[in-house]
Nucleic acid binder design. Structure first.
Lengths: 136, 136
DNA sequence: GGTAACTACTTACCAGAAGATACCAACTCT
DNA sequence: AGAGTTGGTATCTTCTGGTAAGTAGTTACC
């Protein structure tokens, strides 16, 4: 009976690592995931594969440097795949892996939260500013 | 019949804003939420109110500068409240607002994902490194 | 009475990361 | 021949985050 189910192993993993610890590798991983460009790239790819220039147009304001950098680290971490088609001109497609798709739901949820609650946040900022002025 | 339900207004809000746009305020908000310290602070407070030094101990490796900065912006944005008790020595409690609690679930989900999938990410990095060496 | 400790910060400094911009090579289209 | 497409580098400047030290107000200790 030395069998361990996938659920048990997941439960073990949850307790073996703690992102609150500075030297825990999950702390570093959380730092990578907590990135605006990561959120936007993963959200953009959640609808299906996209090309480099396609992502550049979709994610307004991203510089080629940051887009390439973000895509490379996400590829390295197994979140997405990079497929080069040696046509003319060359064509590069990016697509989420199953691992990436499991993450996409969570990151798009945060993005959607921002879109849904921006007005409450703005209202809070105005209240904060008013209190500051009254107190100052 | 000019009535609009809360659900309808939420739906409108979802379409009025687009975090992919550089100049959309939600893009900026997403940038604030996509922060390691924000994730850790909100996750730490999701279990109930905590004091400053309590947070400092819980979130290993955070500097007083970043902790204060993070707490101030989250207070300004209506995610948490700051309550000063003028005892001796002074005591400051931080607590999530209802808005903050609605966000906490999403951010702790990302943190939990990191803890659960760190080994898959490590495996992907090793594969990537091996391919690089073979190709290089 | 001096000084060490506790609280919750603030400030100054600097390395490294992020961002904007320009440029590249290869090819097609007009 | 000149402009436009592709998927990026290279470079320069600005900004952010980490480190380390200082601050204020009170109390406990010797």
């Amino acid at each position: 009976m030395a069998t361990t189910t996938a659920a048990q192993r997941r439960e073990q993993a949850r307790h073996a690592y703690d992102a609150f610890m500075r030297d825990c590798p999950t702390n570093q991983l959380l730092g990578r995931l907590s990135d605006k460009w990561v959120s936007l790239v993963v959200a953009a790819l959640s609808g299906g594969p996209r090309r480099y220039s396609d992502l550049r147009r979709k994610i307004a304001g991203v510089s080629p440097k940051m887009l390439t950098q973000t895509l490379r680290t996400l590829e390295r971490d197994g979140i997405l795949t990079r497929a080069v088609t040696p046509s003319v001109p060359v064509r590069v497609d990016y697509e989420l892996t199953p691992l990436g798709r499991s993450l996409a739901g969570l990151l798009t949820a945060v993005k959607d939260w921002a879109e849904e609650h921006i007005e409450e946040v703005h209202a809070a900022r105005e209240r904060y500013g008013a209190e500051e002025a009254a107190a100052g």
